[in-house]
Amino acid sequence: MDTSVSPATQTTDTPAVQQAPKVQARKVNVFYGNKQALFDVNLDIPDRSVTSFIGPSGCGKSTFLRCINRMNDTIDICRVEGDILLDGKDVYARDVDPVILRASVGMVFQKPNPFPKSIFDNVAYGPRIHGLASNPEELSEIVETSLRRAGLWTEVADRLDEPGTGLSGGQQQRLVIARAIAVRPEVILMDEPCSALDPIATARIEELIDDLRNNYCIIMVTHSMAQAARVSQHTAFFHLGKLVEAGPTEQIFTNPNDKRTQDYITGRFG
């Protein structure tokens, strides 16, 4: 057990973060059956910026990400201990409804997963189920704004009726982001959003992420340190289920406190 670093305090100490953190984790432990996947994670994540989780595969970064919008609820054997606070409110509290939580904490997955529906219906999916639009015009408006924000509008404006599965990989991923934006979330979780894409598509997504950070709190899992360095303002390093170090990206990449971070970043393991 490493006690030399207290990442939570570390983050709050950094001058880059002035306002209250959007997401806070306090002593989060996660178990899959008898196996513990996360150990005592404490972390503050600021609003309106991109925070990257890095670390070798199987280190628990995705698990932690899925705790934030309670996606782990869908796995029967998964158990979460500790508190995760969104705007100071525990998301695992009894009176928090996962439906509302997930509407305000959107998620984008590793592999683009557009629904087998038209492009329009894909984006309209969230507003429809949540009843966000009171009439068709409003719905079209939401769809258009979302697609514009995801930078996809110009490419698909004339073929909204075509199936979303017919788009290219990068377009699909942007469609999925538009789908997430359409319900007006506050936080967007991204689980290795570019790992299934080619470099050009990746670059477009990265641009998009950079755009979006003005309005959203974006939390991103990535296995590419270069991407973390390029896109994010804050970085957290996970190793073997523990949060080793977190802080402003520059500091983590140039002057890490922990030896393991240093080793990982310089490519000694992982």
Partner: peptide, 14 residues
């Protein structure tokens, strides 16, 4: 400006 109203809308439909 909208998140609050969004949440309220969703809560109402729940």
């Amino acid at each position: 400006a909208k998140p609050i109203s969004t949440k309220a809308l969703i809560a109402a439909s729940l």
